[in-house]
Each structure stands twice: as structure tokens, then as C-alpha cells.
């Protein structure tokens, strides 16, 4: 059942609507009363979640009789952004994921944020699917604020992702969708996977498998599920090494994503096409595995090239 959860009239002949699809058992009987919410498209340039929403509904519809709870699908939190290849909310140039919990009496963006929170709050699990950005490709992972670690890590382990990254608390992150819900006791897992402006079906299918597994554990899916892969878990900031460009130029990788690297191995070059020269070689400073890699070739001094997880953590 498709419902509009928020709508606002735009200046010239158009209404902005945020929609969800509530998928529930055919009989209408929601046996155990539980609900999972799948949310994506807060950043308009992150599209990996589009495929996940589609595939999840498609598979449920194939075995509708196996569904024993509610699945709420919110594919487009920022419809204007998705339409216009804009990360933030167009016209306002605001990052929607810095507006939560919003304010029903506030401006259009705050109003939308508040309506979204009101609708999603109370779910038994929320999965907020992000797709990194247009610059970096990420291995399927869940990021968890250390404040909510004990509570969320066991849920995240059921979702068939490769990596769980527990990160430090930060004041700025208090205005995110996930933080707002977690602080209201609605458990919310933030998935980061793939890259902006693209769909990586392999990752999408991996996560959909994981969502079904989680649904089975919640008691709202009676169908067959995979047994989830065991993720690498990191909660120590020293586990992760950042590689930033030392020169402005064009990054050309030499290695693949999620590849195990030895200390001293070359990850790629920053080249200068005008001169035909190599400006810098990016060398792995440790033995580790590359869970983030630069996708967008143009780099400025400081641009993130990749993130490595130390070998010891992976083992």
C-alpha cells in the first residue's frame, strides 16, 4: 500500500511528496506485530538503495505467504535531490542528514525531516541505506556510533555485510537520521556500500539476503534465508589507516577493492596528464585490506584515496 507521509506545495505548479510502500501479509494479520523499515535516498546522489528496495519487494511478492510482519519501504527521502543528481536538498543546498529530528513548525526542510522521523519512529529495526558518495567506493558495511554499540552490533551481524565499523561519537553527527532515531530507542543501522550515482547489483543482492535473514530472526519472515557472512568488526580508531592525496592530479588505481595489501605495495598513482608524469605513488603504509577506494579520478591535495583496515583486525 503506497502512502504519502509528507507533502509540500512548491512555488510553481508542483507538489513535493515523500512516499512509502507498506508491504504486509495478505490476510492483513500482522502475526507478531513487528515492523522493519528500509530507508534510502536521504542523499540524492546515492542510488544503491534503489535496487535494494525494488529487489526486497520483488522477492517478498514471490512468497507473500511467508511474510508475517510489516515491511515499510521509503525509497526516496529526498526526491528533488534524486531527480536532479544533487546530494543535498536542492535550492536550500542543505545536507538532509544534518536536519534531524527536524521541526514540524520549521521551514520546508525541517518539516519534512520531522514528518519522516514521526513516521519511521517505533519500527523494530530501521536500515538506512547510503552509498558513500560519488568519490569513494565502499565495501558493504554498517557504521555504528560507539554510544549504541552494545545494542546495535548484534543486529548488524545478522545483515550479511562484510564490515562493522564502530566510530567515535561526534556532536555534528547528532543531527543525523540514525542518531535521532537511536536516541529515541528506535534501532537504526546505517549501511554504506558501493558508490554514488551507480548501482552495484552484487552488493544490493548481498544486503537483500541479509535483510531477509534479519527479518527471519525478528520473526516476520518464514521463508528460506542464507546464513550471513561473519563481518569484520572494528571499534578501535587505530584499526583504520587513511590515505589522502599528497598532490592534486588524476588518481589511477593499481589494486582492487577489498584486496589484501602488503606494506610497501603500490595502491595507485597520481598522474599529471598535461606533463605525462607521475606526481605521486600511493604506497600502503601497513599490511591490511582496502575497504574504501577512490572512484572519482580527479583529486586535490587532501582528497581521500582509500581506507585500510589493519591485517590483525581482519584475521
Amino acid at each position: 500500500m503506497i502512502e504519502t507521509i509528507a507533502s509540500v506545495g512548491l512555488p510553481v505548479g508542483e507538489v513535493l511528496e515523500i512516499k512509502k510502500n507498506r508491504v504486509q501479509p495478505d490476510s492483513g494479520s500482522n502475526k507478531n506485530g513487528k515492523r522493519i523499515s528500509i530507508v534510502t535516498g536521504i542523499h540524492g546522489d546515492e542510488l544503491e538503495g534503489q535496487y535494494v528496495c525494488y529487489e526486497l519487494i520483488r522477492r517478498i511478492n514471490e512468497q507473500r505467504d511467508k511474510l508475517t510482519g510489516i515491511v515499510d519501504i521509503y525509497p526516496a527521502m529526498n526526491p528533488l535531490g534524486i531527480d536532479s543528481i544533487t546530494r543535498g536538498i536542492p535550492a536550500f543546498d542543505l545536507d538532509m542528514n544534518r536536519l534531524f529530528p527536524g521541526n514540524e513548525d520549521g521551514d520546508m526542510t525541517e518539516y519534512l525531516a520531522a514528518k519522516i522521523i514521526n513516521d519511521v519512529e517505533g519500527s523494530d529495526v530501521v536500515i538506512d541505506i547510503h552509498a558513500s558518495n560519488i568519490y569513494l567506493t565502499e565495501i558493504p558495511q554498517i557504521r555504528i556510533n560507539e554510544l549504541h554499540k552494545e545494542w546495535l552490533v548484534p543486529m548488524a551481524e545478522k545483515t550479511n555485510i562484510d564490515f562493522i565499523w564502530v566510530h567515535g561519537a561526534s556532536t555534528v553527527l547528532e543531527s543525523t537520521f540514525a542518531y535521532s532515531l537511536n536516541s529515541r530507542n528506535t534501532p537504526t543501522l546505517v549501511v554504506e556500500m558501493g558508490v554514488g550515482m551507480r548501482i552495484t547489483k552484487e552488493y544490493g543482492n548481498q544486503l537483500v539476503d541479509g535483510i531477509f535473514n534479519l527479518m527471519r530472526e525478528m520473526g516476520i519472515w518464514q521463508g528460506q534465508t542464507i546464513s550471513p557472512r561473519k563481518p569484520v568488526i572494528s571499534d578501535n580508531p587505530d584499526d583504520v589507516v587513511y590515505l589522502n592525496a599528497s598532490k592534486s592530479g588524476v588518481f589511477v588505481p593499481k589494486v582492487k577493492h577489498w584486496e589484501k595489501l602488503k606494506k610497501g605495495e603500490c595502491i595507485g598513482n597520481i598522474i599529471n596528464p598535461l606533463e605525462g608524469s607521475v606526481l605521486d605513488e600511493i604506497i600502503s603504509p601497513i599490511d591490511g585490506i582496502l575497504f574504501t577506494i577512490r572512484e572519482y579520478p580527479i583529486v586535490s591535495e587532501g582528497s581521500l584515496i582509500g581506507r585500510l583496515l589493519r591485517e590483525e583486525v581482519v584475521r
Binding site: 546530494r87 543535498g88 543546498d93 558518495n133 568519490y135 555534528v172 587513511y242 589522502n244 580527479i298 586535490s300 591535495e301 587532501g302 582528497s303 581521500l304
Partner: peptide, 22 residues
Amino acid sequence: TTDNTDINRMFPGYHLGETTQR
């Protein structure tokens, strides 16, 4: 120019970080 970040949301900055943090 490139990543649409706001320099006035990057202070006190980080000299080993991303461009606008630097």
C-alpha cells in the same frame, strides 16, 4: 568546488584530512 563541503563547517580543521579540512 569539488565535494561541495562548507569550509565554515570544518574548523578547527585537520592538516592530514580532506582538502577543506586542510
